[in-house]
Amino acid sequence: MRVALFVPCFIDAFFPEVAIATLELLERLGIEVEYPLDQTCCGQPVANSGCQEDAAGAEALFVKNFAGFDHIVTPSGSCTHHIRYHFDAIPQTDEVKQVRERTFELVEFLHDILEVDAFPWAEFPHKVGLHNSCGTLRSLRHASMSELGEPFFSKPLALLSKVKGIEMVTPSRPDECCGFGGTFSVFEEPVSAKMGYDKVTDHKNAGAEYIVSADNSCLMHQKGCAERLGVDLKFIHIAQILNGDNA
């Protein structure tokens, strides 16, 4: 099984510890992970702004870097969503389609592909609120969606439940978007910040010490909001908890 690690641009630049945790976690699980050195970005920020044609170069490079792997794993739900559903600025050759189909967000990969049943090295004795990013929730289907009234399930909670000492808390609006939204966070700064303030306050009121997520972009936004608001919360990527980082 050839597995490649895709490290999204903002994780590379701002959150290297998330990428390191992802790499180490996969290695602990016995996976040999390759990291193609010429990788940049999936093109999402450009395409989401409506400038689809400007994403063509990034997409072509992505395919060039990741063609031929059995699985391409990334610790980002929103990038996975983009690659799976919107990555069409370039002609959809068999190679392109294959790369798109083989790209997995980390939680999906652990839960659905590897079917991991234990993280014996992981211990996290804290109260933790889960933030499902909208892409992982409503597109990748990490968990049941409150709008539909479907039977409860949650892949990230299923994984986190195998971590020793962790105590999950539930905010009053668990499915509410935190207001990051990629470029929305700056184009629509007033609403974005207010949503972030409300989100972190909801988690804090539920008793959370940490907010965990499979999307660091949401966490970066929420962290910025919590710090400015003076809400004492810590933020951590799910890869770090599952890798046994004690923070």
Partner: peptide, 9 residues
């Protein structure tokens, strides 16, 4: 169209 986080709710 940019006044949306595309959250899908």
């Amino acid at each position: 169209p940019f006044a949306s986080t595309l959250n899908g709710s």
